[in-house]
Amino acid sequence: MDISILGGPILGIIPLGDIVLYFTPFNLFMFAAALAFTALIAISSTESQVEAEFGTLKNREVKVDKAEFKLRRFLAIVCGLATAGAMVTGDLFDFTLFVTLIGIVNIGIVAAVKEIDVLDAAFQYGLIAMIGTLPLFGGAALILASTGTISLLQIVQIPYTTSLMLFGSILFFLGVAGETGVAPFFATKAEMFRTPGSPFLLIIHLSSLLIIVRTIEILLIINKPF
C-alpha cells in the first residue's frame, strides 16, 4: 500500500533518529490548524460569562481570576502543542504518548474551576482517561509485537494484516476513545464546557476531534483491507 492514497502525496519527512515526522497535505493542514488555534489562545483574553441572577432582573458576570487564567493558559498551550505533535508524528508510540499527555492536560484545564458540576465531570472524564491508558499502550504494544516496528512508514510497507494487528488496533482505538473522551464517553465531557473561560475550552474539543481524525488515518495504515 502507498501512504499517499490516504492523505495525499508526502511533501516531506523529518527524521529525528527513530522518530520520523512526515507531512502529507492532510497532516500538514491539521498541524497548521492546531498551531493556529494554539497561537490564538496564547494571545486572547478570556470571555466573562453572563448569567441571570435569581430573584432580581440583574445579570451576573463570572470572570476568570488571574492566577487561574495563567495556569489554564499554560496547560492549554501544552495541549495545543501536543495535538500539533500528534498530527505529524510517524511513530505509533510517540502518538500514544501525545494522546496521554492530552488526556492529562485536558483534566488540568478544568481542574482549577470552582464549580461542582464541572469538577464532577472532569473527575469522571479523568477516570475514563486513566482506564483508557491501558488499552492504548496495550494496543500499541500488540501492534509492535505483531509487526516488529512502530514506525508507520514501515508498517505501511507490510502487505498483509494479521488478526493480532486487528486486535491491537481495536484496543488502540478503545484507548484513544477513552483518552480523548469521544462518542460513548462524550456525555460526561460535554459538562466540562459549561465553565467560563472560552478560548481554553476550545483546545479540549479541538484536541479530541483532531486526534480522532488522525487515529482513523493510523488505523487505515495498520489495517489494509485489500
Binding site: L6, G7, F26, F29, A33, F37, L210, V213
Partner: peptide, 15 residues
C-alpha cells in the same frame, strides 16, 4: 485532493 482532508475540515468546522 484527499477526502480525509475534508474530514479534518469538517472536524474543525465543529470546533
Amino acid at each position: 485532493g484527499s477526502l480525509l482532508l475534508f474530514f479534518a475540515i469538517y472536524a474543525i468546522h465543529k470546533i
